[in-house]
């Protein structure tokens, strides 16, 4: 099983003892003759915040879809919390939440009703749903906008509503597919920080897909660099102590391996 390289910093060993939340065992995914993922082995432990980095078309989204259960592998085995996410799709109700690339808010629901959506699927009472949704909107700085429809909100606000929707269900696993890529740099940076802080504060396991190395540094405790077809080029552990010089060195290394 693939383990992270102890490249940066040297004294932060990966906790191999931790119970793996996500396991890929020799996973392959083919679309006709195209091999999107080729015998991939990967483990993601509980409470990890992993950034999956790679160029467009490297199979990141395919991996994402297999983890979320929206797609089945062609070969190998994908396990999430010990279960098959595709075959045991309903088992993951309330255990997994996704923040998508675009906000995907239901246009016919107000902000608060959008946040309540996942809770409705869990049969939470109306009053409790409202209490939880309002608390998350408040936490993400959207108080006063709860009755606004999505079209009346800015892109950043809409994406914050979608983050609130994901967190509101208190799912153990958060999957994020380039959720801030459509936003301007300032909003994106602020939301990244808010997101990483929320994940750590709420002890979630999170997989964050991005094509931006800078974003991966901002978000991840661990950076998994993928090259085509979804093979792991680097598996790096990052800590707050990682210096800018070290980050620059890593960035160069990632650029070099991705450009090969």
């Amino acid at each position: 099983m693939r383990k992270p390289e102890s490249v940066m910093p040297q004294d932060t060993p990966f906790e191999t003892e931790s119970k793996a939340e996500i396991v890929f065992r020799s996973v392959t995914k083919r679309f006709g003759s195209l091999v999107a993922v080729d015998h991939l082995d990967l483990e993601i432990g509980q409470g990890e915040l992993v950034a999956l980095v790679g160029k467009t078309g490297c199979g990141k989204s395919t991996m994402f879809n297999m983890i979320s259960g929206l797609m089945a592998p062609s070969g190998g085995d994908v396990r999430v919390m010990g279960h098959d996410p595709f075959k045991e799709f309903d088992w993951f109700r309330g255990k997994m939440a996704i923040v998508f690339q675009n906000d995907r808010l239901l246009p016919w629901r107000t902000a608060v009703k959008n946040v309540e959506f996942g809770l409705e699927m869990l049969d939470i009472s109306k009053a409790e749903r409202r209490r939880i949704a309002m608390a998350w909107l408040d936490q993400l700085g959207l108080s006063g906008h709860e009755d606004d429809y999505p079209h009346a909100l800015s892109g950043g606000m809409r994406q914050r509503v979608s983050i609130a929707r994901a967190f509101a269900t208190n799912a153990e696993l958060l999957l994020c597919d380039e959720p801030f890529s459509a936003l301007d740099e300032i909003t994106s940076k602020r939301l990244r920080a808010e997101f990483a802080s929320l994940v750590r504060k709420n002890s979630k396991t999170a997989v964050f897909i991005t094509h931006s190395i800078n974003e991966a540094f901002d978000i991840g405790d661990r950076i998994v660099v993928l090259k085509r077809p979804a093979e792991i080029a680097h598996d790096l552990r990052i800590s707050p102590e990682t210096t800018d010089a070290e980050k620059a060195e890593i960035t160069t290394m990632i650029h070099e391996s991705l450009s090969k």
């Binding site: 979320s68 929206l70 799709f89 309903d90 993951f92 109700r93 309330g94 997994m96 939440a97 996704i98 998508f100 675009n102 995907r104 239901l106 016919w108 959506f117 996942g118 409705e120 699927m121 269900t169």
Partner: peptide, 24 residues
């Protein structure tokens, strides 16, 4: 399709899928 995937990601039952997504 994006909204359908989003709704499916919350694993709704058939009735909830119909009332929360299909009908509106």
């Amino acid at each position: 399709k994006d909204l359908l995937e989003m709704v499916m990601s919350f694993r709704p039952g058939r009735l909830k899928f119909f009332t929360a997504m299909v009908l509106p």
